Amino acid sequence: MAGVEAICPPRRYRRGDAIFLQGDPATGFFILVEGRVRLILPTAKGERTVALLGDGDIFGESFLTGKPMQATTASVQSPEAVVCPISREQFLEIARTLPEVALAFAALLAERIGQLTEEMAQGTLPAPVRVGRLLLSLGQRFGQKKGRGIRLDLGLSQEELATFCGVTRVTVAQAFHLFRAEGIMEKEGSGYLLYPDRMEKLLEAWESS
């Protein structure tokens, strides 16, 4: 990152700032150094959150596909975020002077493709399982260990969580009620305490039933 930041100085953003909007020219990509960013897809029924990104994630890579415009809107979800914008020309310079960064970039893109494939496979699972899998994924990435559980407090509404896994807000609310009844999740202040081991066993049982 030190080498990258020397070529592409980072910028600071605040909660709610748009790093780019859908339809903006796709002239480069971005590395999220610190903070959280939501990728939003505006639809006729409102905004749909398609990804929540954290430290080290890459986004806005539409320029690699030859698309002239950004396909989504990137909005800062954390109180602050530090982002390195990288133009096409800067990326070529990085690839020339820091080839290991270019390889890491390719690995991240391959990982992203794998995640998308897994998400597509989960689309056929029962709705509560999809919600549970989403919570486990978010907990693993953004949660804080607390005893045998993981505290998850991202400030996301049930409506926003619903858009992640392609269900309705009512379905998320019903899943949360079911998880609390099964003792695999507890409400804790503004967030939730997840018990990943118990949740994993229950989700596996539902998937095989």
Rank of each mutant, 00 (worst) to 15 (best):
R141V: 04
S208N: 13
P25S: 12
A44E: 15
Q77A: 14
T27P: 01
R169Q: 15
T163P: 02
L178Q: 10
C8K: 01
C8D: 03
C84M: 14
H177C: 11
V33L: 14
L178I: 04
G166A: 10
E188V: 07
G147P: 03
E111P: 03
T65S: 05
A18K: 15
E100P: 00
A173D: 10
P196I: 03
A121C: 08
G166H: 14
D197C: 06
L178H: 09
Q77R: 12
T117E: 13
R14W: 11
E200W: 15
S157C: 11
E5N: 03
F59D: 12
L103K: 12
A181T: 10
Q77F: 13
F91W: 09
H177E: 15
L152I: 10
L52P: 01
A51S: 07
G16S: 07
A121F: 11
K187Y: 06
P10L: 04
W206A: 07
E61Q: 09
V167H: 10
L194C: 03
K187G: 06
D153R: 06
F63T: 06
P85R: 02
L108D: 07
E207N: 00
G46Y: 04
L138N: 05
A110V: 08
Q158W: 09
I150C: 05
R151N: 03
A26S: 10
R88C: 02
E80G: 13
L108M: 14
P79L: 07
L53V: 12
S157W: 04
E80N: 14
L136N: 05
E89Y: 02
A26T: 07
R88W: 07
G23D: 08
A106S: 13
R133M: 14
L92E: 15
A2Q: 10
A6R: 13
A181S: 14
V82C: 08
I58H: 03
E34V: 00
L108Q: 15
D57S: 09
M120W: 13
R36E: 01
I150Q: 07
I7Q: 00
L152H: 06
D55K: 15
P9C: 04
G114H: 08
E160W: 05
A18N: 13
A81Y: 01
Q158H: 12
E188W: 02
S137T: 13
A104Y: 11
L154R: 02
V129T: 02
K45S: 05
T43F: 12
T171N: 04
T168L: 05
